[in-house]
């Protein structure tokens, strides 16, 4: 024993620690701490290292922060909801071929009309086209494989994977036939980029994401029940097909809107959602959903700060996210193996 017998056990120190532990067990305390971290990062990002005019920097940077908030909401919320629907925590909605579709649409435009026309293409038209096509694709897949008599989520996922692979192969085939210059313009455009969002598109995306989230609010408790799986949820009176239709629709809109805004960034949802499950301290969606969004902000803002201020890069954030995500995944795999 290393305790000093001359010192009487103080009652304040352990009870403070106990109280702290009890507070930390509360989901709202954890969420509040996370919120404070996000606010601090936002402050550092907005006000730190201003090279010239503060108002110019603020305008430019706040738009990036807004884009990050929109993207982390869309990706975080849709991934958690997708996990709940599918009862599987290592999937992302990208398995349904959303991002593959996005790249395919852009590639077709470059392939048909060349990179000059692609760059001159009206951003708003492109954005709307991409959203409409992506949402239409997922709704079609859904009604075909889930709305009918078969009602199998797994069949739907499987067909989604097959179609996604087909789109990727088709895209690759077209890209190979492209002029090298066209190809370079295209691949540059396909890196997710958060730092130069178009203001109109950002506003429109934010509106869509807010609407999709609003559709989820009345379903938050039903989502909790869905974690028990379809049979149990049906037994507890959940109209599974209708609920999953609404959830899936909102996931599709969020993913389509945010992918059309910044490009494919879905891998990041997997990290954020899994971190949220262990951080939130509750399985309830009231806590896991906002936690996932805030963790997304920490990842994106933290990554951007490291990239810009520490490494001095002006490059894209997706490389940092992929690098950190890879490390996190190794950790998950190794930890699972050790148990």
């Amino acid at each position: 024993m290393l305790t000093d017998p001359t010192v009487a056990p103080t009652s304040t120190a352990p009870s403070a620690r106990v109280r702290l532990a009890a507070a930390w067990a509360q989901p709202w305390v954890r969420l509040a701490v996370l919120g404070a971290v996000v606010l601090a990062l936002v402050a550092v990002y907005l006000f730190g290292q201003v090279p010239g005019s503060l108002s110019f920097a603020l305008e430019y940077r706040s738009r990036t922060v807004a884009a990050m908030l929109v993207v982390s909401t869309a990706v975080g919320v849709s991934t958690v909801v997708f996990h709940t629907i599918t009862q599987n925590r290592i999937l992302t909605p990208s398995i349904m071929g959303f991002d593959a579709f996005y790249v395919l649409i852009s590639t077709v435009i470059v392939f048909v009309s060349g990179s000059a026309a692609f760059l001159a293409f009206d951003q708003l038209t492109l954005w709307i086209t991409q959203i409409v096509v992506m949402v239409a694709f997922s709704v079609l897949l859904f009604t075909w494989l889930f709305g009918g008599k078969r009602r199998s989520i797994h069949l739907m996922l499987l067909v989604g994977i097959v179609l996604g692979t087909f789109f990727r192969a088709f895209t690759e085939w077209m890209q190979r036939m492209l002029d090298p210059l066209d190809f370079q313009v295209l691949s540059d455009a396909m890196f997710a980029s958060l730092t130069r969002p178009d203001e109109t598109l950002l506003t429109l995306t934010a509106v869509l994401v807010v609407l999709a989230c609003a559709a989820l609010v009345p379903l938050r408790r039903t989502l909790d029940v869905l974690t028990l799986g379809e049979p149990a949820a049906v037994g507890l009176g959940v109209d599974h097909r209708r609920v999953v239709l609404v959830l899936f629709g909102s996931v599709s809109v969020m993913i389509a809107a945010s992918t059309a805004l910044v490009g494919p960034i879905l891998f990041f949802g997997l990290i954020v959602a899994n971190l949220a499950y262990s951080y939130a301290g509750s399985f309830r969606h009231v806590w896991t959903l906002p936690t996932a969004v805030l963790l997304g902000m920490v990842c994106l803002l933290g990554g951007q700060l490291v990239l810009e201020r520490v490494l001095g890069y002006g490059g894209t954030l997706s490389t940092v996210i992929d690098f950190a995500g890879g490390l996190f995944f190794l950790y998950l795999v190794l930890r699972k193996g050790a148990r």
Binding site: Q87, N88, R89, A232, Y277
Partner: peptide, 13 residues
């Protein structure tokens, strides 16, 4: 009320 055979839960409840 129905209790099914297979009751695996993904989340920690």
């Amino acid at each position: 009320a129905v209790l099914r055979q297979d009751n695996s839960v993904a989340a920690r409840l």
